[in-house]
Every structure is written in C-alpha cells, then in structure tokens.
Design a binder for these strands. Structure first.
Lengths: 336, 336
DNA sequence: ACGATTTGTTGGAACGTTCCAACACTTTCG
DNA sequence: CGAAAGTGTTGGAACGTTCCAACAAATCGT
C-alpha cells in the first residue's frame, strides 16, 4: 500500500546516521551509543520500518528457518507433534515453513525442493513417504530429522520415534493383568509401524504363555479398518474377550463393531488402542490406549535437528521414546 | 555439506554462457536457443544447482509466498480448511508459510510480524484472535483475508465464512420435520459464532410457532461443555426430545451425557451437531450435523486473497457459504 | 604527555538473483 | 539493396541487508 516500504537507508537518513549503524542497532548490538540507538528506534517506529528477511538471509547466508514436511495435516497425531516442534523451534529463535505432502510422494518431493530453494537450514520430516534413495540425497544436502519413524545409518539423518514393540507389549500386559487370555489383535496393515506393533503383541503373548491364543485379524489405521478387523474377530468362534487394536482411530471403529453386535465394552469385550490422540479421551469414547508422548517427540526431534545443525558431521542418532499406558473405560476385568 | 552451493554463475561458467542467459533459461524463456538451453540444463544438473529463493525474492521484489496464520492446529476443522487453502495456493504457483498462534494473541502478533518480514504477499488468517485495531493495521500493510469469521468494512480485508444463522435454522428444521417440538439448544459460549448459531435456533423455533419451547443451556465448543449443557437439558423437567448442540465436539460430549442417563440416541433423544468435521462421521459416533464445506471455504478464501493481490484497491468483500445438513444416526423420529 | 586501547561510527564490498539497455547477427521485404 | 525487425546474448546496475577494514574521538596506563 505504502508507495514503497522503508528500508534501512531511509531509517538511517531520518536518524542522521549511517545504514551500518542502523543495522547494528536493529540487532541490538551494545556498541551503539544510547543517543544513536534512541534516534534510530524513533526513526524506525516513525517510518514503520520492518527488516527484509530475504535481504538478511542473502547477506548472512542463514535463513534462520526450518522446513517442516508433514504427511497429512488431517491426522490429529501429526498436529500434536507439530505443536511440539514449533515450540522448540521458537525457543531457538528460528522460524518454520510448514508444508504438506498430501499423502502424495510427488507433491512431497516438490515441496521439499521448494523448501531447499528457500535455503532452510534444516528439515523435519513427519511421517514421510520418501523412497530411501531421495531421503539419502536430501540428508546429504541439508541436515534433517525423521519423526515417528526409525531410520538408521543414513549419514546426516537423525530420527526419533516411540518404541512400538514395547508399547504393544504394554497393551497385552495390561489386558493379561485384567485376567484376559483370549486376546486378539486387529492389525494396522502392512506398514512398518503396524508390523512392529503386531510383533510386540505376538512376543508378549508368547511371554505370557499364551502363544496358542495368538489371533490376528486384518485391519488398517482407519475407522473402517478397525471395524472390519474387529468384526472378523467377534464373529470368529474363538471367544475373544479383548482386542488390542493397532491405533486409536481403528479402535473407534472397533467400538462400533462391538456395539453392532449388542455387546458391551468393557463388560463383554475390552479394547485397547494405540497413539494417545486427544480424541480417544472424549468421554463417549474413553478408549484405553498406549499413548505416545507426541509433543515431546516433536520437541526432541527438533532438538536433534539443532544439534546436527550445530555439528553437521555428528554420527546419525536415533532416539526411542517410551509410550505409556492410559487406562480408560474401554478395558476392564475379564468376566468369563 | 558441499563446500559451497553452486550459484547461477557457476552454471554459466560451466555451460560457457553468461549468467543472464542462465537466468532466462531457468525461468523457461523462449528467447534462448535450443543449444544454449541444453548446455545450461546439463550444467545445472551436473552441479546440482538450485536457485536461491532469497536472492530471487530480493531481486524481483516478490516472494511468491503467502502467510497462513491458524489459531490452533489441533482443531480438526482448521486442518481441513488449511488443506483447501494449500490446494488453491499451489495452483497459483505460490508457496505457503504456515504458523500457529497457539491460541495466544501475543504469539500470534509476533508470528504475523515475522511473516511480514519475510515479505509474504498476502496473509490468510484462520480463526484469529487479533484485536480489531491490529487487524486494521495489518490489512493496511498487506492484503489479507479472514477465514471462518465475518469481518466487514475493513479496508483491504476480505472474509469468508459459513452462514451460521442459516445453518442453525437447518438443524431446527430437520428436527421439526422429524416431529420434535421440545428442542433444546446447548450453546457454544459467548463467542460470535456461538451467538449466531443461537440466534438462528431462536429464529427458527419462533418461525415454527415453537417460541415457548425455546430453551438454551450453557455449554462450550468442547467435549466437556457439551456434556455439561446436555446434562442440564436432560435433567430439566421440560422433556426435551432433541438437542441442537453448538458444534460437533460438544455434540460428542452430549452423547456421553445421554448415555450416562441410560437413554438412547436417537430413540429417546435426537442430537444434531455443527461443523461437519470428519470425526463426526465415525461409525460409533455417527452424528447428524450441519456441515460447513471446509475445504471449499479454504480454497475460496485463498481465491479472494489472490483477487486482492491482483487489485489491492478493490472494495472489501465477504463471502457467505451455505452449510448443508448431513443426516446420520444421532437423529430420528420423535416418539412421544 | 604520549602511545595503546577502547568506543562509536562509517563507506564500500559482498550475497545471488532479475532486469535493462545495448549489442552483434540474421532475416524480412518494399 | 538498405532500412527495419527479429533473434540470441551480454555486462552491469539494482534489490536490502550484513560484514569488514578503517577511522576519529575519548580514555587509559605509566
């Protein structure tokens, strides 16, 4: 609107000093006399001066900006992670460019490319869909961290995720402690995370001497998938009294399958989900779940990235965080 | 990692042409001979050249970037709106810097300031918390659009939102058509949107000759608020057979209140929510709702912004979009 | 009292692009 | 055949910052 935005030069002219001094003052250097500083601040305020971040980043070759790529904003667990990332980033005085891949690898690639053009100093990938090759290439170009997935041994790339195997074991332990023996698992499909959770379930069942009770029903990380898997489990003749469902959304679907059969939760069948999304705590759902510390995963992930920015040659690190059991109304003692 | 990123000069040297020509070629000008173009592309690929967006935006004084400020990422309806915005923005070849206000006006202000330093060409405010004064100031500085709230008459500022009054009327109409007469309203608190919905409810009730049946119970746009309001409604002696709840999250809470009293939905009491968030469609909730076209609101909002960027002097516009009724299992015929 | 330090301040060169006026060559065509 | 129009290319100036070497003025230590 203003005919032309004021620049550092205009401020200098009005304050009667050189542009260099204005530059120093704006960044709060202590080598500026009180008088000059006052004059400069006054002039800047009067003109409505705002530093130009593009020029700044060009001149000192640092953008003070991080790129955050998230698979899909609609997934509430990612939103909670992002909140953690943003907090940490703000603390470091950095900024954030957030883009979505829309669950589409091609778009995702393009967005990453754009972020790199913006000279972001680091990349946070939340639930990416990148083929291993390009992940490698990116990490070679720019410090990066992968959140909520374990990547090991790629140079320049750190990662952080919750320990899915151990979380799945907690779910089974909890159900066993309530007296359940015929505990079925509704899977989350063929992806890595789902397989880890399934593995943890099988391990824990075996450890409890329930190996022959192991029963997996094919599901997915969706309402629909959970419904389908739970339906199959309930309609089987194995008399399952408890269901460990691969994630919370699917657990919501499982709840519906139980209701459709005029059974009650948790009296007839107990349900445990995974993720600890806020939604699972709503009183009409009240799902017992294995909660990931989502915000912490976000902030520690960002922390990892800042470490790498500080020392780009450090060896790749992976942090595994422990999930924790939150007991709600969807699980209860076994009555049979 | 590379000692120094290659610049346009390096590409020029390798291809044996001037930097100006490389600049032209990179932007796909047709004034470049086929030979030169080939040589340049080859050289760029070989060096892994990537244009520097900061330098570009400095030189042509356009950032090709929009700032998006969202009140709170955790609210799923905002996530759906953002998706719409991003789609539209991508179509225009622009980029997006997304920041959150964390529901905190001070942080929100700071983030907006940063976006302006980045020379964003426009601002999308989704559910802001800005005092009217600073909104004014911002709009004077930079084209802006407010999404999901109606702002009228501020120069340089457009807005788009669904028509809450008309949506609330639809909810009541639906319930009346099912035979309900004692229809209560669980409010969403004192905010503008909640008041509009309440107003629509009262209007429609009056239009149907049910003025003396009007009954509002204090709630909020939360699970807890919906539970509280619905509890009060159900415990009253007015025999309400239907509840119009101010938004979907609150409707989920209302569902719990009904269940706690050993009543059934929709046999004993019908429930209608508002917003049309994806969550309301989960089969174990299956809430009848007044759905806002969230993605469309996002993309049309962004469209408005592009119009204003094209012509900064156009008079402020407001778009009201019609919500629509989605009937699910939480509403049914009145049985009393 | 005089060089050494400290305290403020300065102009100019970067940073990596885009734009522009200018150029050398073709080609067109009246 | 010569002027006009087109085609491809170029170097240099700009964009708004930060950095650096240099400097003038004030203060210090002996």
């Amino acid at each position: 609107m203003a005919p032309n935005r004021p620049t550092i030069k205009d401020v200098a002219a009005l304050a009667g000093v050189s542009k260099s001094l204005v530059s120093l003052a704006m960044r709060g250097s202590d080598r500026v006399s009180a008088e000059s500083r006052a004059a400069i601040i006054e002039a800047a305020a009067q003109l409505g001066y705002r530093p130009n971040a593009a020029a700044r980043s060009l001149a000192d070759r640092r953008s003070h900006t991080l790129g955050v790529v998230v698979l899909d904003l609609l997934n509430p667990i990612y939103a909670e992670i992002i909140d953690g990332v943003q907090g940490e980033v703000r603390q470091h005085g950095y900024h954030t460019m957030l883009v979505t891949g829309n669950d589409n690898p091609v778009i995702e690639q393009g967005e990453v490319e754009k972020l790199l053009e913006f000279q972001v100093e680091g990349l946070v990938l939340i639930g990416h869909r990148m083929p291993a090759g390009s992940l490698d290439a990116i990490a070679g170009d720019c410090p990066a961290v992968v959140i909520s997935r374990a990547e090991r041994g790629i140079a320049g790339l750190d990662s952080i995720s919750n320990d899915d195997v151990s979380g799945a074991r907690m779910a089974v332990d909890h159900l066993v402690s309530l007296g359940h023996r015929s505990i079925a698992h509704v899977t989350g499909g063929g992806n890595e995370v789902a397989l880890l959770r399934k593995f943890g379930y099988e391990q824990s069942m075996t450890d409890h001497g329930l190996a022959e009770q192991i029963a997996c029903y094919e599901g997915a990380f969706t309402d629909e998938g959970g419904y389908r898997g739970a339906a199959a489990a309930l309609d089987s003749d194995r008399g399952h009294t408890a269901l460990f469902v691969a994630n919370d959304i699917a657990a919501v679907g499982a709840l519906a399958a139980v209701a459709d059969r005029a059974l009650n939760v948790p009296t007839d069948v107990s349900i445990v989900g995974y993720d600890g999304m806020a939604l699972a705590s709503l009183r009409s759902l009240s799902i017992t779940t294995i909660a990931q510390p989502l915000a912490r995963i976000g902030s520690e992930g960002a922390g990892l990235l800042f470490l790498r920015i500080g020392d780009p040659t450090r060896p790749p690190a992976h942090i595994g965080v422990e999930p924790r059991l939150i007991v709600r109304n969807s699980s209860g003692a076994c009555h049979t």
